Lab assay of single mutants.
Amino acid sequence: MEQATVKWFNAEKGFGFIERENGDDVFVHFSAIQGDGFKSLDEGQAVTFDVEEGQRGPQAANVQKA
Rank of each mutant, 00 (worst) to 15 (best):
Ile18Ala: 02
Lys65Leu: 13
Gly37Val: 06
Gln59Ile: 09
Thr48Arg: 11
Glu19Trp: 12
Glu53Lys: 10
Lys13Pro: 03
Phe27Arg: 00
Lys7Gln: 03
Asn10Ala: 05
Phe9Trp: 15
Phe27Glu: 04
Gln3Val: 14
Arg20Pro: 04
Asn62Trp: 05
Phe30Gln: 07
Asp24Leu: 12
Met1Thr: 13
Glu2Cys: 14
Ile33Asn: 01
Val28Lys: 01
Gln59Ser: 07
His29Arg: 02
Ala32Pro: 05
Val47Pro: 03
Val28Arg: 00
Lys7Ala: 03
Val51Thr: 07
Ser40Gln: 10
Gly44Trp: 04
Arg56Val: 07
Gly14Pro: 01
Ile33Arg: 00
Val51Gln: 05
Pro58Asn: 06
Glu53Phe: 14
Asn10Cys: 12
Gln64Tyr: 09
Ala46Arg: 14
Val47Gly: 00
Ala46Pro: 11
Asn10Phe: 05
Glu43Val: 15
Asn22Cys: 14
Phe49Pro: 02
Gly23Leu: 08
Gln3Phe: 14
Phe17Ala: 01
His29Leu: 04
Thr5Asn: 10
Gln64Glu: 09
Glu12Tyr: 12
Asp25Met: 15
Lys13His: 09
Asn62Phe: 06
Pro58Cys: 08
Ala11Arg: 13
Ala60Asp: 02
Val26Gly: 01
Val51Ser: 05
Ala66Leu: 15
Gly37Gln: 06
Met1Asp: 08
Gly35Ile: 09
Gly44Ala: 04
Phe38Val: 08
Val6His: 01
Ala32Asp: 09
Asp42Ser: 15
Ala46Trp: 15
Ala11Glu: 09
Trp8Gln: 02
Asn62Glu: 03
Val6Met: 00
Glu12His: 12
Arg56Asn: 11
Glu43Leu: 12
Asn10Ser: 12
Gly16Met: 03
Glu19Asp: 06
Lys39Ile: 07
Gly57Trp: 05
Ala60Lys: 00
Ala32Ser: 09
Asn10Met: 02
Gln3Gly: 08
Ile18Cys: 03
Gly35Leu: 07
Ala11Asn: 11
Asp42Gly: 10
Asp24Asn: 12
Asp25Gln: 14
Asp42Tyr: 15
Ala46Cys: 15
Asn62Arg: 10
Gly14Asn: 03
Gly16Asn: 00
Glu43Thr: 14
Gln34Trp: 10
Lys39Arg: 12
Ala60Pro: 02
Glu12Val: 12
Phe27His: 02
Thr48His: 09
Asn22Trp: 10
Asp50Ser: 14
Val47Glu: 02
Ala46Ile: 15
Gly23Pro: 02
Glu43Trp: 13
Asp25Cys: 14
Glu12Ala: 13
Gly54Asn: 06
Gln64Cys: 08
Glu21Cys: 14
Phe15Gln: 01
Gln64His: 12
Gly37Glu: 07
Ala4Ile: 02
Ile18Phe: 04
Thr5Cys: 14
Leu41Trp: 03
Ser40Trp: 15
Trp8Ile: 03
Ser31Phe: 05
Glu21Arg: 12
Glu43Lys: 15
Ser40Asn: 07
Pro58Thr: 10
Ala32Cys: 07
Phe30Trp: 15
Ile33Trp: 00
Lys39Cys: 10
Asp24Met: 11
Gly16Ser: 00
Asp50Gln: 14
Glu19Cys: 15
Gly54Ser: 10
Asp24Cys: 12
Ala46His: 14
Ala4His: 04
Ser31Ile: 05
Phe38Tyr: 11
Gly44Arg: 06
Glu52Cys: 14
Met1Pro: 13
Gln45Asp: 14
Gly54Phe: 06
Gln55Glu: 13
Gly23Asn: 07
Phe30Asn: 06
Gln59Cys: 06
Glu12Met: 12
Gly37Met: 06
Gln45Gly: 07
Gly35Asn: 06
Leu41Asn: 01
Arg56Leu: 10
Phe27Gln: 01
Ser40Cys: 15
Glu2His: 14
Asn10Gln: 05
Arg56Gly: 10
Thr48Asn: 08
Met1Gly: 13
Gly14Cys: 07
Ile18Tyr: 00
Ala4Val: 03
Gly54Cys: 09
Ala32Thr: 06
Asp24Gln: 13
Gly37Ala: 07
Pro58Ile: 11
Phe38Met: 07
Phe30His: 09
Gln3Cys: 15
Arg20Leu: 09
Phe38Cys: 12
Thr48Val: 11
Trp8Lys: 02
Gly23Gln: 09
Lys13Thr: 08
Ala66Asp: 09
Ile18Thr: 01
Gln55Thr: 13
Ala32His: 06
Gly54Gln: 05
Gly37Pro: 05
Asp42Arg: 15
Gly16Phe: 01
Gln55Ser: 13
Glu52Val: 15
Ser31Lys: 07
Phe49Asn: 02
Asn62Pro: 01
His29Ala: 03
Glu19Pro: 00
Asp24Val: 13
Ala4Pro: 03
Val6Cys: 06
Phe15Asn: 01
Lys13Met: 12
Lys13Phe: 11
Met1Arg: 15
Val28Phe: 14
Ser31Cys: 09
Phe17Pro: 03
